[in-house]
């Protein structure tokens, strides 16, 4: 108690309190807020801005009313989560066509993304953007996340999320830097080649477990440098380069005549 009393006067105390309050509010909100279809939480002004942004940046491919075109998916009913995933990870707007859209520095800020998401979800109900509490790795069960990840995800994304190849130049990206929110949204919406993992397949709690597992992997390996986490091929390459390199160097030194 004494310690607690002492800490109450700490200069960071107000900040910590504020943070706690925010978290609690967020948590309560997350618990109470209706999760599907976020259209009703967005203001009409947002939708208007979003529409303008859409016309300027997206309509060339996706069509004036987001109805899609040959080779380009319709966005009616994809939901705010899909928009937020694609735009905040920089995949959309797409720079050039290729086997798949590539993640790059985002081109629209948080506000613009929200407006776009509001517009697209006003076209048809779809998965909503998860709340911060839903994607908080601290609340996930790492061990269960591991069990789920290796059954559902590791075949494409590699055992620790280092990424892997798909057919015809497509690939499953590495997940080292993907934000928890984007991980959640990717599972929920199944962008591009990735299948959908809806809440019946992988429940929201399980999704959070997977996030916890992936974030835990970012601590690196207990054994030292993880060598990219790519498995035996990279181990073999490093073994030859470093091990055989140094040992043959040593052999040359041993065999050389001293001056």
């Amino acid at each position: 108690m004494k310690a607690l009393a002492a800490r109450r006067h700490h200069r960071f105390a107000p900040a910590v309190l504020l943070l706690l309050a925010l978290l609690v509010t967020g948590g309560v909100y997350a618990a109470l807020a209706p999760s599907p279809a976020s259209a009703d939480t967005a203001s009409t002004a947002d939708i208007e801005t979003g529409k303008k942004l859409f016309q300027a940046n997206c309509a060339t491919c996706h069509g004036a009313n987001a109805e899609g075109s040959p080779g380009v998916p319709s966005l009616v009913g994809v939901g705010a989560a899909a928009v937020d995933f694609q735009v905040s990870s920089g995949r959309m707007p797409m720079q050039m066509s290729g086997p798949q859209a590539i993640s790059k520095p985002r081109q629209m800020d948080e506000e613009q993304t929200a407006a776009l998401a509001a517009y697209v979800s006003s076209l048809g109900a779809g998965p909503a953007i998860p709340t911060d509490a839903q994607v908080d790795p601290a609340d996930g069960d790492i061990a269960n996340g591991m069990a789920l990840f290796r059954t559902n995800c590791a075949m494409c994304h590699n055992a620790v999320g280092a990424g892997g190849a798909l057919s015809e130049g497509k690939f499953a990206p590495a997940l080292w830097e993907t934000t928890p929110r984007n991980i959640y949204q990717a599972m929920l919406t199944g962008p591009q080649s990735m299948p959908v993992f809806n809440d019946a397949n992988v429940t929201p709690e399980e999704k959070q477990d997977i996030i916890a597992f992936l974030v835990d992997q970012r601590e690196g390996s207990a054994g030292g440098n993880a060598l990219g986490g790519l498995g035996p091929v990279s181990e073999g390459l490093w073994g030859w380069a470093v091990g055989m390199g140094v040992l043959i160097g040593a052999a040359v030194w041993i065999g050389a005549k001293s001056s």
């Binding site: 290796r150 892997g164 035996p232 073999g236």
Partner: peptide, 14 residues
């Protein structure tokens, strides 16, 4: 059931 991308043996079996 599971398998991971980069499922390879050690280099001498590659």
């Amino acid at each position: 059931s599971p398998v991971s991308a980069g499922a390879q043996p050690d280099w001498y079996m590659l």
